[in-house]
Structures are given as C-alpha cells and as structure tokens.
Amino acid sequence: MRILLRAVSPLAFLGLWHVLTANDVVFLLRFDRFPGPAEVLAEFARQLATPVYYQDLAQSLVRILTGFALAAVLGGLLGALVARSRRAGDLVLPLVELARPIPAIALVPIAILLFPANEQGIVFITFAAAFFPIMVSTRHAVRALPTAWEEAVRTLGGGRVRVLRSVLLPGILPGVFGGLSVGMGVAWICLISAEMISGQFGVGYRTWSAYTVVDYPGVIVGIITIGLLGFLTSATVEVLGRRATRWLPAEARR
C-alpha cells in the first residue's frame, strides 16, 4: 500500500511531463522545444551504449573523489588541530574565517590562473567546496566531546596517542559525518559548475555542451546522470556514517 502511495508523485510528474511536451504547451512556460520522457529515454539508452558516457562518468567521479578525499583529510586534520590548540587556532582561523564565505565556484578564475592543468583547477574547486563544511564540523565535534571521556582515559594511564585513538577519533565521528554529507553535496554543485565552465570531459561538461549544440534530450540525460551520481555518493557517505556511529542512542540516529 505504502509503495503505491510513494509511486504517486514520480508517476504524476512523468505523466505531466509527457502531456505538456507531447502537446507542445506554451502557457507561462514553453514546452514546445522541450524533449518528452520518451525522447529522453531513447537518448539515455543510446548514450549508455557509447564509451563516451562512461568516460565522462569516470572522469567526474575521479575528480569528485580526489577533491573530496583531500578535503576530508585536510579539513579533518585542521579542524581537529584548531579545536585542540588555541595557538593553532589563533594562527589559522582568521584566514579560514575570511575565506569561508567565498563560494568555491567564485574561485574558478583563480583556479584557471593558478593551475597549469585544467584538471587540477577543477579538483581544487571541488576540494575548496567540501573543505569548509568538513573542517568546521570537525572542529565543533572535537569541542563538543565530553571532557569526562578523555579524563577517564588519562587517569587510566592513557597518553596522548591513546586519547587520540580511543577517544577523539571515534568520538567525533557523528559530527564529522554530518560535515562529510554536507561537503559531498556542495562538492557536486561546484564540480558540475566548474566542469560546465572549464571542463573538457565530465558529466557537467557533457550536459552543457549538449545544450550548446541544441541536443536537449542530451541535456536531460546529463541532468539525470548528475542526480544519480549525487545520490550514489551521498548514500555511500550516509551508509558509512551510520556504520561508524551505530553506538549512538536511538533518538540521536535518524
């Protein structure tokens, strides 16, 4: 019963899409040039049979995973460092707070100027997008750790390494995964935008180039592909996060 209910909105959307485009409706919005679901499906099937589709997919995935992994490692390390050491915080945070409000996508010109290869620039944009949410959430997670956990381990004879390994790392995971989820989301936004602006491969580039050559079904296929990739990577982060934080009390889990 529930599955039927849940199928209602996507099916209604498809139906509406079909009716609007099949009849070339022009009322407020123009559907006369817009491809219908059948056309898009045919184009999707055609693209799935071409190697270019998978090359673009792989290219975008490599870019996002590289940028995201760099952001996770550096953002996590820096977030933990500035939370633990006031001196490190004083040293680094002013710059971070100044840079943080700048949307990563605004850095595209800088990336083009600075990096010799296009590829590095795009990865840099992706990295910059994911870095801040991850760093900030790690910092908060470290600060929010109950002091009793660390103190208990220290009075049991544990040293710095033990506190780091047995208290800090596992204790901050719930907060860090929150940041990773957000980071993955903004990383996709910026990756696709950067690819549209300056890419030579990738699903973002392919989508935009389909638009410029008036291949509208291709545009929709690109958009759907982007959505699927975004869903896949976010779901992966989510699943890993749940596994790592299974110990949370029921009300804190979602």
């Binding site: 103190e151 208990a152 009075t155 047995s166 204790g171 299974r246 110990w247 009390p249």
Partner: peptide, 11 residues
C-alpha cells in the same frame, strides 16, 4: 578517577 556518570566510552 571514577566519575559520577557518563564516563564510559559509548561506542
């Protein structure tokens, strides 16, 4: 040191 509460590592 043994605390009043919440000093066990919850994971």
């Amino acid at each position: 040191l043994m605390f009043q509460d919440d000093a066990l590592l919850p994971w």
